[in-house]
């Protein structure tokens, strides 16, 4: 069975370009605005959409994504509403892959089996769960694969050649290479080092490699796109979202536009990246 993620990466490969993966938080700054943002993303140039499932204690995230999660929770976001948002998105778009990203506890409390059924029904394609390393595959990874969802694993600069096979085993859809040791929104990665790391991962797997953490501008997206199958941008989108909120923290059409504009810029960067690298 081919998932939307696999279909999309095959299409990108045929086009000869890298993809843009966007990360936004569901429910930030409120349910309706975050749904409008999600709907605007494909048109703006996002190839794969990552949606954050907010959690009170996001231990791998920097201040921007922490604050986004808290805004969403304060606005009443729950895991059930996140799944509802995906199903509403799917009414108009049956092609763009959706990956849910977050932490394990809300899924564990929702109930793993029930979550997988509901996620599949809603139109979710893949999962990234930060605090589930391969050592805990029985919790969610293996059940998710059986349910026909991709389970996307993070590889990091600390994932050495000895450990890579364990990380890649049971990974599907794509590999998410975290380009720095650190939390989300940290310093920009060094494109050459990223190129070496992607090369190292590709010696171990056929899967596409997306690179994220620290990518903020069209230029850095272009530089990374020269070395990777996709570029992930998150904190930069969340920063423009926050900047667009009014004095009461409310979003509006300007919020959707601010995020979509930056996505369009980044998409141009990503599209320019491969031709730069090919020269």
């Amino acid at each position: 069975m081919t998932t939307r993620i696999e279909t999309r990466f095959a299409a990108l490969k045929a086009e000869g370009r890298a993809g843009l993966v966007t990360f936004t938080m569901t429910g930030d700054p409120d349910y309706d605005t975050s749904l409008a943002i999600a709907k605007a993303l494909p048109k703006a140039g996002a190839d794969v959409i990552e949606l954050g499932m907010p959690f009170t204690d996001p231990m791998a995230d920097g201040p921007a994504i922490q604050a986004a999660g808290l805004r969403a929770l304060n606005a009443g976001q729950t895991l059930a509403k996140t799944l509802k948002l995906v199903s509403e998105f799917r009414k108009d778009d049956n092609d763009t892959p959706i990956v849910l990203m977050g932490y394990y506890n809300p899924i564990y409390i929702y109930g793993v089996d029930r979550f997988l059924v509901d996620a599949k029904t809603a139109g979710v394609d893949g999962l990234i769960v930060v605090d589930l390393p391969p050592e805990e595959d029985e919790e969610l990874c293996l059940p998710a694969l059986r349910a026909g969802l991709n389970f996307i694993r993070l590889a990091t600069p600390t994932t050495d050649d000895k450990r890579l096979p364990a990380v890649l085993n049971n990974t599907s859809g794509f590999v998410y290479y975290v380009s720095i040791t650190g939390i989300t929104g940290s310093a920009a990665p060094d494109a050459n080092k990223v190129g070496d790391a992607v090369g190292r991962i590709k010696r171990h797997t056929q899967l596409p490699v997306a690179v994220g953490f620290g990518v903020r501008t069209a230029a850095s997206a272009a530089a990374i796109a020269g070395h990777a199958d996709a570029v992930v941008v998150g904190s930069a989108l969340i920063d423009v979202l926050r900047a667009s909120l009014d004095g009461h923290g409310k979003g509006g059409p300007q919020t959707v536009k601010a995020v979509a504009d930056l996505v369009a810029e980044l998409a141009q960067g990503v599209r320019a990246g491969r031709s730069v690298a090919a020269e």
Partner: peptide, 20 residues
């Protein structure tokens, strides 16, 4: 050997920390 006391315990950390 995997750090479990019954169903409790375990190693629920980000990949960056696993090797450490």
């Amino acid at each position: 050997e995997r750090g479990h006391f019954g169903i409790y315990g375990g190693r629920f950390v980000a990949e960056t920390l696993m090797p450490l």
